[in-house]
Each structure stands twice: as structure tokens, then as C-alpha cells.
Computed example of a mutant assay.
Amino acid sequence: MSLTLHVDGAKWRASQDAALAANPSLVPVIKGNGYGFGQDLLCAEAGRLGVSLIAVGTYPEVPGALATFPGDVLVMEPFRGSVDSALPDLGNPRLVHTITARDDLDALRAAHTSARVVVEGLTSMSRFGAPVEKVGDLMAAGYGEGVALHLPLGSGHVGEISRFVEAVGGIRPFFVSHTTADEVAELRRRFPEHRFSARVGTDLWLADRSAYEVRAHVLDVRPLARGDRVGYRQRPQPAGHLVVVSGGTSHGVAMESPASAATARSRAIAVAEGLLEAAHRVRSPFTISGTMPRFAEPPHMQCSLLALPAGVPPPRIGDTVPVRMRLTTAYPDAVVVD
């Protein structure tokens, strides 16, 4: 029994096709946990889409991508000569490196004279990149194949990207992240001599939430009398049923990234959730008989104990129940594409 990601293949692929139709030169991003689907499956899907280039996040992801995708592979993290010079595949002719500094470019060229590169510009994201006034020189020194720009979430990026286009000079391909199809279209109207390619992950793989669902197996069910103690921490429980389901911390269950809490409402929710956690009354992401029961205690590594309230019909052993999870932090045991 397992935690499984079930995918409606027809709907999922239709959403991919729609994303590509809206942005024909997009570069699929395949990184981390493969957005819950796994990197190998996404590489196969990128091949089905017929794109010539994909982007991965880090160098450890390169060997798998080169093995499972027939086209070119762009590494989005910058090459660092002090760290990456001895890694395998650096000279592979299908690999494209990201450069942000002259020292790193020189180290890469010293090891592999024909290594392919793009130059990352430092945007308002302020993560990494070369200042706008140095991008052109790095492009010239490294025979760069394009300029990469990683923008913050949201919209309104056309002006910032335009400044790089005007400062760099020449006819350059631009690889941009977190831009909309309308923004890319506007850039093409402004600079018809340039090629703009959007690097797209979430809006390609996770666009249609109705196309996929995580489901957990019910491993055990037993009645609870008020005050019964369960689990590692032997916490007393209310009357109802104890339901043991597959899915724990190793799968990413209840593993959340920090919340932005950008509005008064989101801050209030964060405070309320903190109070519930302090009182050991955290609602689980599992749905049983129309309700989301609380955790009887924090999730275990591969399963979770749920306190189903009295009056709610319990499931049977072997049933499956849906799990609400962020797929970017999910590691299912299996992915089933129907």
C-alpha cells in the first residue's frame, strides 16, 4: 500500500499542449522532485512536446536529464569554477551552462574550450547574475548563446527585460523566467529581431489541478474511546476512530514551505494555525467521508495517524483517500498516468 499520484493523462497532456500553443518557444523546466511527477517522466513529456531545450535546476540533475531527454539541457544554477570544475558531463555538447562572472567563465573554458554558455543577468530578483552593464562583455568573451533573466513572481516585467535588451546590444536570444505569454508577446513586438523563450515549470506541469490527485491507502482503522492514548507521544484522543493512512514526512505530507503572509488575512490564518498546532489540533491534508480529520500526532516517516471524529463514517482498510499536497514538495511512492 502506498501514497500514489494519479494522473488523468489526457487532461494533463492537453494542458501541456495548451501552454505550448500559448507560448510556442517555451523551455520546460524540470527540476527538484519533478513537480511531484518525477524528472524522468517530465523529460519524456518534454520529448513528446517536441521541444529542443529543457532547463534543469542543478548540476546533479544533469546526468539523468541527458540520459532521458534527447535534446539540449540548460543548467539554471550558475557554474562555479571553485565547485563544479570536476563534475562529469561538463563538456557534453548538449549541455548549456549559466555564467555570471568572468572567473567562472575562464575556469569553464580552461576545462572545456567548447563548452556552451548563456549569461545570467542580475534582475530585481537579486538572486544571482551579472550586472546589466557587464552582461554584454561576458557574452562577447564567452561566445554566449543567449541571456537568461530570472524575474520575481507577478507581472510588469517588460520594462526590466527591455533595459537588458537595450543595454546588451546585438541580436541575442533571451531566456526569461516568470513572464506571462502576453509579456513575451509584447517583447517580441518591441524587439522583433530577438528571440524570447520563457522558461516554464509550474504553469506547464501543474496548470490543470483537476488532472491529478494524490491518494493514500487506508492501512488500519480502530475505534477510539474518549481519553485513549495513541502514537509515539501517547496523546489522549477524543471519541471516534483512529485511521492509519499511508503517507508521511518522507512523502512530503505536512511539509510546508514558509508562508509569505503578505495580507492581514493570511497573517491571521498563520496565527490561528500556530495556535492549533500548539494545542495539538492540526488538521491533516487527508479527506475522509467529506471531512479533513486532525492528526492524532505529527506524521510519521511513511504513515500518518488521524483522529476521525465520532459520527463520521470510517473508511475500510484498503480504501484510498485523497490528500491535498503541494506537488513541488511531494514524493509519492508511485505515479500512475491513466
Score class of each variant (00 low, 15 high):
1 M>V: 04
3 L>V: 14
5 L>Q: 04
9 G>R: 15
12 W>C: 03
14 A>S: 14
16 Q>L: 15
19 A>H: 04
19 A>R: 08
20 L>P: 00
21 A>W: 09
25 S>V: 01
28 P>V: 07
32 G>P: 02
32 G>L: 11
32 G>E: 08
34 G>L: 09
34 G>P: 00
35 Y>T: 06
39 Q>V: 10
40 D>P: 00
41 L>P: 02
46 A>I: 07
57 G>C: 04
58 T>E: 10
61 E>W: 06
62 V>K: 08
62 V>A: 06
64 G>P: 00
64 G>M: 09
65 A>Y: 05
68 T>N: 14
71 G>P: 09
76 M>L: 15
78 P>R: 03
78 P>I: 03
81 G>C: 05
83 V>H: 13
84 D>R: 00
85 S>H: 08
91 G>K: 05
95 L>T: 12
96 V>S: 03
96 V>M: 07
100 T>R: 03
103 D>Y: 03
108 L>F: 10
108 L>E: 11
111 A>D: 07
115 A>T: 07
116 R>G: 06
116 R>V: 04
117 V>I: 14
118 V>L: 12
120 E>K: 15
120 E>P: 00
125 M>K: 04
126 S>F: 04
131 P>L: 04
132 V>E: 14
145 E>L: 13
146 G>W: 12
148 A>E: 06
149 L>C: 08
151 L>W: 06
155 S>H: 06
157 H>P: 00
159 G>S: 13
160 E>M: 11
160 E>C: 02
160 E>I: 12
164 F>G: 02
166 E>H: 12
166 E>R: 12
167 A>Q: 13
167 A>F: 06
167 A>G: 03
168 V>C: 09
169 G>D: 10
169 G>A: 06
180 T>L: 03
185 A>S: 15
195 R>C: 05
196 F>Q: 07
198 A>T: 11
200 V>P: 00
201 G>E: 07
203 D>F: 06
204 L>E: 13
205 W>T: 07
210 S>L: 08
211 A>F: 07
212 Y>D: 08
218 V>H: 14
219 L>C: 05
220 D>T: 08
221 V>P: 01
224 L>V: 07
225 A>M: 04
225 A>S: 13
229 R>F: 03
229 R>G: 08
229 R>K: 15
230 V>P: 00
232 Y>V: 13
234 Q>M: 10
234 Q>W: 02
239 A>I: 08
241 H>E: 12
241 H>A: 11
241 H>G: 01
242 L>V: 05
250 S>D: 14
250 S>P: 00
252 G>P: 02
259 A>L: 07
260 S>P: 05
260 S>G: 01
261 A>S: 10
267 R>C: 00
269 I>S: 04
270 A>L: 03
271 V>R: 10
272 A>T: 07
277 E>I: 00
277 E>H: 13
278 A>F: 10
279 A>T: 05
281 R>V: 03
283 R>E: 14
290 G>K: 05
296 A>I: 05
296 A>W: 05
298 P>H: 14
298 P>E: 13
299 P>E: 12
308 L>P: 00
309 P>R: 10
309 P>W: 09
310 A>S: 13
313 P>E: 10
318 G>T: 10
319 D>F: 11
321 V>R: 09
324 R>W: 01
327 L>N: 13
328 T>G: 06
333 D>S: 09
336 V>Q: 14
337 V>K: 08
338 D>K: 02
